[in-house]
Protein backbone atom coordinates (compact mmCIF):
# COMPACT_ATOMS: atom_id res chain seq x y z
CA UNK A 1 0.00 0.00 0.00
CA UNK A 2 1.16 3.52 -0.64
CA UNK A 3 1.32 6.47 1.69
CA UNK A 4 -0.47 9.75 1.21
CA UNK A 5 2.20 12.47 1.29
CA UNK A 6 0.04 15.54 0.92
CA UNK A 7 -3.58 16.42 0.60
CA UNK A 8 -5.32 19.62 -0.39
CA UNK A 9 -8.90 20.65 -1.01
CA UNK A 10 -8.78 22.34 -4.40
CA UNK A 11 -12.36 23.41 -4.62
CA UNK A 12 -15.68 22.36 -3.25
CA UNK A 13 -15.58 18.53 -3.33
CA UNK A 14 -12.34 18.35 -5.28
CA UNK A 15 -9.21 16.97 -3.61
CA UNK A 16 -5.64 16.78 -4.73
CA UNK A 17 -3.54 14.08 -3.10
CA UNK A 18 0.08 13.22 -3.60
CA UNK A 19 0.92 9.59 -2.96
CA UNK A 20 4.20 7.78 -2.61
CA UNK A 21 4.60 5.63 -5.74
CA UNK A 22 8.18 5.78 -7.00
CA UNK A 23 7.79 3.16 -9.74
CA UNK A 24 4.58 4.70 -11.06
CA UNK A 25 6.18 8.15 -10.97
CA UNK A 26 9.09 6.86 -13.04
CA UNK A 27 7.09 4.89 -15.61
CA UNK A 28 3.99 6.99 -16.14
CA UNK A 29 3.40 9.07 -19.23
CA UNK A 30 0.76 11.65 -20.08
CA UNK A 31 -2.65 10.09 -20.50
CA UNK A 32 -2.19 7.13 -18.17
CA UNK A 33 -4.23 6.38 -15.09
CA UNK A 34 -4.08 4.44 -11.84
CA UNK A 35 -6.58 2.38 -9.88
CA UNK A 36 -6.95 3.22 -6.22
CA UNK A 37 -8.76 1.53 -3.40
CA UNK A 38 -9.32 3.04 0.02
CA UNK A 39 -9.62 -0.37 1.69
CA UNK A 40 -8.17 -3.68 0.53
CA UNK A 41 -10.97 -5.87 1.78
CA UNK A 42 -14.15 -4.00 1.06
CA UNK A 43 -13.11 -0.96 -0.92
CA UNK A 44 -14.07 -0.37 -4.52
CA UNK A 45 -11.42 -0.11 -7.20
CA UNK A 46 -11.68 3.27 -8.88
CA UNK A 47 -9.74 4.51 -11.88
CA UNK A 48 -8.22 7.99 -11.53
CA UNK A 49 -6.10 9.75 -14.10
CA UNK A 50 -2.63 10.87 -13.07
CA UNK A 51 -2.49 14.65 -12.84
CA UNK A 52 1.22 14.95 -12.22
CA UNK A 53 4.26 12.98 -11.15
CA UNK A 54 7.55 13.80 -9.49
CA UNK A 55 10.09 11.03 -10.13
CA UNK A 56 12.65 12.64 -7.83
CA UNK A 57 10.21 12.69 -4.94
CA UNK A 58 8.84 9.33 -6.05
CA UNK A 59 5.28 10.55 -6.00
CA UNK A 60 2.24 10.92 -8.20
CA UNK A 61 -0.53 13.45 -7.87
CA UNK A 62 -4.18 12.51 -8.21
CA UNK A 63 -7.17 14.79 -8.36
CA UNK A 64 -10.64 13.51 -7.62
CA UNK A 65 -14.10 14.73 -6.84
CA UNK A 66 -16.16 13.22 -4.04
CA UNK A 67 -19.22 11.92 -5.82
CA UNK A 68 -19.94 8.67 -4.02
CA UNK A 69 -19.09 6.38 -1.14
CA UNK A 70 -15.74 5.29 -2.56
CA UNK A 71 -14.43 8.76 -3.34
CA UNK A 72 -15.62 9.94 0.06
CA UNK A 73 -13.71 7.09 1.66
CA UNK A 74 -10.66 8.23 -0.25
CA UNK A 75 -11.19 11.83 0.82
CA UNK A 76 -11.38 10.70 4.44
CA UNK A 77 -7.77 9.47 4.26
CA UNK A 78 -5.26 11.82 5.80
CA UNK A 79 -1.58 12.47 5.25
CA UNK A 80 0.36 9.41 6.37
CA UNK A 81 -2.57 7.03 5.76
CA UNK A 82 -2.13 4.28 3.21
CA UNK A 83 -4.20 3.38 0.18
CA UNK A 84 -3.89 0.72 -2.50
CA UNK A 85 -2.66 1.98 -5.85
CA UNK A 86 -1.96 0.16 -9.11
CA UNK A 87 -0.45 1.71 -12.20
CA UNK A 88 0.38 3.30 -14.46
CA UNK A 89 -2.43 1.78 -16.54
CA UNK A 90 -3.65 2.32 -20.07
CA UNK A 91 -1.76 3.55 -23.08
CA UNK A 92 0.04 6.88 -22.96
CA UNK A 93 -1.28 9.69 -25.13
CA UNK A 94 0.20 9.58 -28.60
CA UNK A 95 2.30 12.72 -28.69
CA UNK A 96 3.90 14.18 -31.81
CA UNK A 97 4.28 17.53 -33.42
CA UNK A 98 0.78 18.00 -34.84
CA UNK A 99 1.06 21.76 -35.28
CA UNK A 100 -1.83 23.43 -33.55
CA UNK A 101 -3.49 21.60 -30.67
CA UNK A 102 -6.55 22.56 -28.69
CA UNK A 103 -6.91 20.99 -25.27
CA UNK A 104 -10.35 21.16 -23.72
CA UNK A 105 -10.84 20.34 -20.05
CA UNK A 106 -14.06 20.32 -18.08
CA UNK A 107 -14.14 20.38 -14.27
CA UNK A 108 -11.97 17.69 -12.85
CA UNK A 109 -10.89 16.75 -16.37
CA UNK A 110 -8.47 19.67 -16.20
CA UNK A 111 -6.22 17.57 -13.96
CA UNK A 112 -5.45 14.78 -16.44
CA UNK A 113 -5.30 17.38 -19.21
CA UNK A 114 -2.37 19.11 -17.55
CA UNK A 115 0.34 16.49 -18.34
CA UNK A 116 -0.96 16.17 -21.90
CA UNK A 117 -0.70 19.92 -22.44
CA UNK A 118 2.84 19.74 -21.10
CA UNK A 119 3.77 16.86 -23.41
CA UNK A 120 2.23 18.53 -26.46
CA UNK A 121 4.12 21.73 -25.70
CA UNK A 122 7.35 19.82 -25.22
CA UNK A 123 6.86 18.23 -28.66
CA UNK A 124 6.73 21.68 -30.23
CA UNK A 125 3.01 22.19 -30.67
CA UNK A 126 1.16 25.46 -30.38
CA UNK A 127 -1.36 24.70 -27.65
CA UNK A 128 -4.60 26.47 -26.84
CA UNK A 129 -6.35 25.46 -23.63
CA UNK A 130 -10.05 25.82 -23.05
CA UNK A 131 -10.78 25.38 -19.36
CA UNK A 132 -14.37 25.08 -18.26
CA UNK A 133 -16.44 24.35 -15.20
CA UNK A 134 -19.99 24.68 -13.99
CA UNK A 135 -19.03 27.53 -11.71
CA UNK A 136 -15.89 29.38 -10.56
CA UNK A 137 -15.42 27.31 -7.37
CA UNK A 138 -15.02 24.15 -9.41
CA UNK A 139 -12.20 25.46 -11.56
CA UNK A 140 -8.88 23.83 -10.82
CA UNK A 141 -5.30 24.09 -12.04
CA UNK A 142 -5.90 27.36 -13.89
CA UNK A 143 -2.53 28.83 -12.93
CA UNK A 144 -0.54 25.75 -13.96
CA UNK A 145 -2.32 25.49 -17.29
CA UNK A 146 -2.05 29.22 -17.98
CA UNK A 147 1.71 28.98 -17.63
CA UNK A 148 1.94 26.20 -20.22
CA UNK A 149 -0.62 27.29 -22.79
CA UNK A 150 -0.03 29.62 -25.73
CA UNK A 151 -3.63 30.65 -25.48
CA UNK A 152 -5.85 30.19 -22.42
CA UNK A 153 -9.62 30.49 -22.56
CA UNK A 154 -11.66 30.30 -19.39
CA UNK A 155 -15.39 29.58 -19.43
CA UNK A 156 -18.02 28.82 -16.81
CA UNK A 157 -21.61 27.74 -17.30
CA UNK A 158 -22.84 30.51 -15.01
CA UNK A 159 -20.35 33.20 -15.96
CA UNK A 160 -18.87 33.36 -12.44
CA UNK A 161 -15.39 33.22 -13.96
CA UNK A 162 -14.20 33.91 -17.49
CA UNK A 163 -16.67 33.87 -20.30
CA UNK A 164 -20.22 32.64 -19.71
CA UNK A 165 -20.27 29.81 -22.18
CA UNK A 166 -19.93 26.08 -22.62
CA UNK A 167 -16.50 24.84 -23.71
CA UNK A 168 -17.93 23.92 -27.10
CA UNK A 169 -18.46 27.58 -28.01
CA UNK A 170 -14.81 28.71 -28.03
CA UNK A 171 -13.93 25.31 -29.50
CA UNK A 172 -16.25 25.94 -32.42
CA UNK A 173 -14.81 29.43 -32.93
CA UNK A 174 -11.27 28.09 -33.02
CA UNK A 175 -12.28 25.40 -35.52
CA UNK A 176 -13.93 28.02 -37.74
CA UNK A 177 -10.63 29.93 -37.78
CA UNK A 178 -12.47 33.00 -39.09
CA UNK A 179 -10.09 35.63 -37.68
CA UNK A 180 -7.42 36.82 -40.13
CA UNK A 181 -4.33 34.62 -39.93
CA UNK A 182 -6.10 32.09 -37.70
CA UNK A 183 -5.54 28.44 -38.50
CA UNK A 184 -7.70 25.42 -37.93
CA UNK A 185 -6.47 23.07 -35.18
CA UNK A 186 -4.66 19.90 -36.23
CA UNK A 187 -5.78 18.03 -33.16
CA UNK A 188 -8.21 18.43 -30.30
CA UNK A 189 -7.92 16.66 -26.95
CA UNK A 190 -11.02 16.78 -24.76
CA UNK A 191 -11.23 15.46 -21.21
CA UNK A 192 -14.15 15.95 -18.87
CA UNK A 193 -17.60 14.62 -18.19
CA UNK A 194 -18.82 12.23 -20.93
CA UNK A 195 -21.49 14.64 -22.07
CA UNK A 196 -18.88 17.38 -22.53
CA UNK A 197 -16.60 15.07 -24.50
CA UNK A 198 -19.51 13.94 -26.65
CA UNK A 199 -20.40 17.52 -27.57
CA UNK A 200 -16.78 18.45 -28.17
CA UNK A 201 -16.63 15.56 -30.64
CA UNK A 202 -19.84 16.74 -32.27
CA UNK A 203 -18.44 20.27 -32.49
CA UNK A 204 -15.26 19.23 -34.28
CA UNK A 205 -16.84 16.58 -36.49
CA UNK A 206 -18.04 18.98 -39.25
CA UNK A 207 -14.54 20.48 -39.39
CA UNK A 208 -12.89 17.06 -39.69
CA UNK A 209 -10.51 17.79 -36.83
CA UNK A 210 -9.28 14.65 -35.13
CA UNK A 211 -10.52 14.66 -31.54
CA UNK A 212 -9.05 12.50 -28.82
CA UNK A 213 -11.10 11.83 -25.72
CA UNK A 214 -10.11 10.03 -22.53
CA UNK A 215 -12.77 7.65 -21.24
CA UNK A 216 -13.31 6.83 -17.59
CA UNK A 217 -15.60 3.82 -17.60
CA UNK A 218 -16.50 1.30 -14.93
CA UNK A 219 -13.46 -0.83 -14.31
CA UNK A 220 -12.44 -3.50 -11.84
CA UNK A 221 -8.98 -4.88 -12.45
CA UNK A 222 -7.86 -2.33 -15.04
CA UNK A 223 -5.43 -4.85 -16.50
CA UNK A 224 -7.41 -6.54 -19.27
CA UNK A 225 -9.28 -9.22 -17.38
CA UNK A 226 -12.83 -8.24 -16.44
CA UNK A 227 -14.23 -6.60 -19.56
CA UNK A 228 -16.35 -4.19 -17.52
CA UNK A 229 -14.80 -1.16 -19.24
CA UNK A 230 -15.86 -2.15 -22.73
CA UNK A 231 -17.19 0.47 -25.07
CA UNK A 232 -18.19 0.42 -28.69
CA UNK A 233 -15.79 2.44 -30.86
CA UNK A 234 -16.44 2.56 -34.58
CA UNK A 235 -18.76 -0.43 -34.20
CA UNK A 236 -16.10 -2.56 -32.52
CA UNK A 237 -15.96 -3.47 -28.85
CA UNK A 238 -12.87 -1.96 -27.23
CA UNK A 239 -11.55 -2.23 -23.71
CA UNK A 240 -10.67 1.10 -22.11
CA UNK A 241 -8.03 -0.43 -19.81
CA UNK A 242 -5.88 -2.01 -22.52
CA UNK A 243 -7.04 -0.36 -25.76
CA UNK A 244 -7.54 3.10 -24.25
CA UNK A 245 -8.16 5.19 -22.29
CA UNK A 246 -7.96 7.55 -25.28
CA UNK A 247 -10.08 7.01 -28.36
CA UNK A 248 -11.20 8.90 -31.42
CA UNK A 249 -14.15 10.87 -30.08
CA UNK A 250 -15.86 10.79 -33.47
CA UNK A 251 -16.11 6.97 -33.27
CA UNK A 252 -17.20 6.46 -29.64
CA UNK A 253 -20.75 5.24 -29.01
CA UNK A 254 -21.41 7.94 -26.42
CA UNK A 255 -24.96 7.02 -25.56
CA UNK A 256 -24.01 3.38 -24.99
CA UNK A 257 -21.06 4.41 -22.86
CA UNK A 258 -23.12 6.82 -20.77
CA UNK A 259 -25.83 4.27 -20.12
CA UNK A 260 -23.16 1.78 -18.98
CA UNK A 261 -21.85 4.41 -16.56
CA UNK A 262 -25.32 4.52 -15.05
CA UNK A 263 -25.42 0.72 -14.51
CA UNK A 264 -25.63 0.92 -10.74
CA UNK A 265 -27.45 4.21 -10.36
CA UNK A 266 -30.72 2.96 -8.89
CA UNK A 267 -28.92 0.65 -6.54
CA UNK A 268 -26.57 3.36 -5.38
CA UNK A 269 -29.43 5.70 -4.68
CA UNK A 270 -31.30 3.02 -2.78
CA UNK A 271 -28.27 2.16 -0.70
CA UNK A 272 -27.06 5.75 -0.23
CA UNK A 273 -24.12 4.38 -2.03
CA UNK A 274 -23.43 6.97 -4.63
CA UNK A 275 -20.22 6.06 -6.30
CA UNK A 276 -17.89 7.49 -8.83
CA UNK A 277 -19.98 5.86 -11.51
CA UNK A 278 -22.49 8.67 -11.32
CA UNK A 279 -22.43 10.54 -14.54
CA UNK A 280 -19.62 13.02 -14.63
CA UNK A 281 -17.03 10.59 -13.40
CA UNK A 282 -14.64 10.84 -10.53
CA UNK A 283 -12.14 12.83 -12.42
Amino acid sequence: MTKILSKRLLSEEVYRIEVEAPLVARERKAGQFVIVQADDDFGERIPLTIADADPSRGSVTLVFQTVGASTHALAAKEIGDRITLLGPLGNPTHIEKFGKAVCVGGGIGLAPLYPIVGALKAAGNEVAVIAGARTAELLIMQEELKLLADEFILVTDDGSAGRKALVTQPLKEICEASAPGARKPDIVVAIGPPIMMKFCAETTRPFGVKTLVSLNTIMIDGTGMCGGCRVSVGGETKFVCVDGPEFDGHLVDWDGMMSRLRSYKTQEEAAHHKCHLVEGGAR
Binding site: D41, I220, D221, C226, A271
Partner: peptide, 27 residues
Protein backbone atom coordinates in the same frame (compact mmCIF):
# COMPACT_ATOMS: atom_id res chain seq x y z
CA UNK B 1 -26.30 -2.49 -19.25
CA UNK B 2 -26.89 -5.82 -17.51
CA UNK B 3 -24.61 -7.82 -19.80
CA UNK B 4 -21.48 -9.00 -17.96
CA UNK B 5 -18.53 -11.17 -18.64
CA UNK B 6 -18.28 -14.00 -16.14
CA UNK B 7 -14.89 -12.55 -15.17
CA UNK B 8 -16.45 -9.26 -14.15
CA UNK B 9 -19.46 -10.80 -12.45
CA UNK B 10 -17.38 -13.25 -10.44
CA UNK B 11 -14.64 -10.74 -9.59
CA UNK B 12 -17.21 -8.37 -8.15
CA UNK B 13 -18.75 -11.16 -6.12
CA UNK B 14 -15.55 -12.92 -5.04
CA UNK B 15 -12.53 -10.65 -4.80
CA UNK B 16 -14.49 -7.46 -4.19
CA UNK B 17 -16.94 -9.27 -1.86
CA UNK B 18 -19.98 -7.60 -3.36
CA UNK B 19 -22.16 -10.28 -1.78
CA UNK B 20 -21.46 -8.59 1.56
CA UNK B 21 -23.85 -5.76 0.83
CA UNK B 22 -23.38 -4.16 4.23
CA UNK B 23 -19.66 -3.73 4.00
CA UNK B 24 -18.53 -3.94 0.38
CA UNK B 25 -18.32 -0.71 -1.57
CA UNK B 26 -18.39 -2.56 -4.91
CA UNK B 27 -21.96 -2.88 -6.16
Amino acid sequence: VGVFSANEYLTRANLMKAYDRERAATP
